Simulated scan of single mutants.
Amino acid sequence: MHPLSWLFAVLSALGLTSGTPFDLHPRAVTRISASELAGFAPYTQFARAAYCPTDVLKDWKCGEACEANSDFEVSLVGGDGDDIQICKYSPSLGAVIVAHQASAILFSDLTDADILLATPSTALFPGISSSVEVHSGFLNKHALTANVILAKVKSIMNSKVTNNIVAIGHSLGGALAEIDTIFFRFNIPSASISAMTYGTPRVGNHAWAALVDASDVNFKRIDNEIDPIPIVPGRFLGFEHPIGEIHILSAGNAVSCPGDDDASDADCQIESVPTIFEGNILDHLGPYEGIYIGTIFCT
């Protein structure tokens, strides 16, 4: 059996499909203009750059991804030996950029014992409600570098006199970027926070999605065609995406989907990919408006 077929079989056995117990009500999508789609490119290139080795990122020499944001000032590059995080300042965007790489163990993160939901630590998320729960594996990954990144973000904000933070990531990196939005909101409440995530799996429960929705974060999660990753873990396991889905249907053609994890419109992701068996894992890599994201595309 092909390794991906085996993976899909495991996901299916664990119920990681798009089945849902929630009531759904029809809501209309809105088309994304060509100019808005083009405006995503700098952020997509940051997500792409996060896959590159630290030795080239330190000098910001990672080929097209770095050239696309040539004025970028690298401040922190590193991680836990597996994931790479980049913290830096972008003069052209006027913001501190925090970009997370995905992990090679994304699929096992979605299928192992860490599938359990857990309440984020009040040490990192002071005052968070006990009703809020997040994928425990994602929380553990985030905690590894959270305090180091927070200190660097505060330092850059002070030195550059900016109030803007943008969290970026693809796949598991997107999940970490989503967690960052609330982490920064709790720890830097005055910041103007945005997030651009790509091919992101579900991160937390309904209370988590509601918290992201209510947090005054400009949150966008972009999914590509029939990528199966955004429909896992399954909603019947308690997971739910926040508002902010942008679904790429084809080159130059994307829609903004309303509501949390909306399934009522055929153009939204979980209607396009009802189960993982109907998805195409290659769509997870892109193209996101002509840009592919992954280790083999970092130069």
Rank of each mutant, 00 (worst) to 15 (best):
G174K: 00
G238P: 03
L211W: 07
I188G: 13
D223N: 13
R185T: 01
S215D: 09
P228Y: 08
I168Q: 00
M157L: 02
H170W: 11
I165Q: 08
D180E: 13
V153N: 01
A146G: 11
D180Q: 07
P189W: 12
I231D: 11
H142W: 07
N163W: 01
A191V: 13
L237G: 06
V212H: 04
F183W: 07
S190D: 10
N147H: 01
M196F: 14
T145R: 15
A195D: 11
N163H: 06
K152L: 05
I188W: 06
N187H: 02
F239P: 12
P228N: 09
D223V: 11
S155D: 11
F186C: 02
Y198R: 00
I231Q: 12
S159T: 14
V232L: 02
P201V: 14
A191P: 06
G174L: 08
N147Q: 14
A210W: 03
Y198N: 07
P233Y: 13
A214W: 12
P233E: 11
T200H: 00
S194M: 11
A214M: 09
L211T: 14
L176R: 15
N163D: 14
N140H: 11
P201I: 14
R202Y: 07
H170P: 11
A143H: 14
A210Y: 06
V166Y: 10
T162H: 06
A210G: 00
A207G: 07
H170Y: 09
I188M: 09
T200A: 00
N140F: 02
I222L: 10
L237K: 14
E178V: 04
R185F: 11
L150G: 08
N164M: 10
N224M: 09
L144Q: 10
